[in-house]
């Protein structure tokens, strides 16, 4: 097992050790260990039902893992995520995520969606909103800063002109990008993207690649990426973890993973088992050929 793509001697941002998640008799994740480096893109791939999203749900506190340890390092402090509440994970450990099916606050404006993500800072500045109500200077300053940060990210995702629109009225691709902007407004240390390219056309996918790379390079954030679109995974990630039926079957740089016989078997199936979805297989084969 190759150990990811960590920079020279840096401890990894996220360490997942022996993570197991059972639902009754079903083992969704079975003793998975991997790590994700800071300022790098780590992709988690695998066939449908491999347990990718379950890992995200464990990381963000939505599920409590049956076994295992999830350690995140932020500002010299270690956070053991399996022991924390969801909102504390977001607030203190700084994990932000997006969803396969977009989950915006549909009936709030685009800008408000970004302000909600910054409310911990705002609540502190506003003294539980009492000062906000009488619009004290300290609160106004904090709010102006929050709006600035929101505007910055709207600019990055190309939605600045639509800041006052209701989020539910945005086009699908715009909603996906707004979700990323919202995640970034909470100033995360680790950004978890769950199939960000799903439903995007090739041009939008290209823009998305650029956005994710920009987030990694300029904002010094670790990115954990679940994606089926191999043109995203292979092009931008430094490190790929492959899951199949809840087990890790490969872990390494994209080039190594692509050639790994276990991965090819998982995607293409054993020889006697030829009923695997052809489009998934097609992706891998295309890449192996055109690479």
């Amino acid at each position: 097992m190759t150990d990811g793509m960590q920079g020279a001697g840096d401890p990894p941002l996220l360490e997942v050790e022996h993570l197991t998640m059972r639902f009754g008799g079903l083992v969704a994740i079975d003793d998975v260990s991997f790590s994700a480096a800071d300022r790098a893109i780590t992709a988690i791939i695998g066939p449908n039902g491999a347990g990718k999203t379950t890992i995200f749900n464990c990381l963000t506190g939505f599920y409590k893992p049956t076994e295992g340890m999830l350690r995140l390092r932020r500002g010299g402090k270690d956070y053991l995520l399996e022991r924390m509440e969801g909102h504390d994970i977001a607030h203190h450990a700084g994990i932000a995520r997006t969803f396969q099916n977009v989950r915006l606050f549909q009936r709030m404006s685009v800008l408000e969606n970004l302000l909600v993500a910054q409310h911990n800072a705002l609540m502190k500045a506003s003294g539980m909103s009492i000062l906000g109500l009488i619009s004290a200077p300290s609160y106004r300053k904090a709010e102006a800063e929050a709006i600035d940060l929101g505007a910055y990210w709207l600019d990055q995702v190309g939605l600045l002109s639509r800041a006052d629109l209701e989020a539910g009225h945005l086009a699908y691709g715009d909603q996906r990008r707004l979700e990323i902007a919202r995640a970034m407004c909470s100033r995360p240390s680790l950004l978890c993207l769950d199939e960000p390219a799903a439903g995007l056309n090739p041009r939008e996918t290209g823009e998305l690649n650029g956005l994710i790379q920009m987030i990694r390079d300029e904002h010094r954030v670790g990115v954990l990426l679940i994606e089926h679109d191999m043109s995203v995974v292979m092009r931008i990630s430094e490190h790929v973890v492959v899951l199949d039926y809840g087990r890790k079957i490969a872990d390494g740089d994209p080039e190594a993973v692509r050639r790994d016989p276990a991965v090819i078997r998982a995607y293409l199936g054993e020889e006697e088992d030829e009923e695997l979805p052809s489009e998934v297989a097609g992706d891998i084969v295309d890449h192996a050929a055109g690479g």
Binding site: F62, H87, A90, A96, F105, H119, S186
Partner: peptide, 10 residues
């Protein structure tokens, strides 16, 4: 609107 999502943004 969405309690789970609200918790996820802290």
């Amino acid at each position: 609107q969405d309690k789970l999502m609200a918790a996820l943004v802290g």
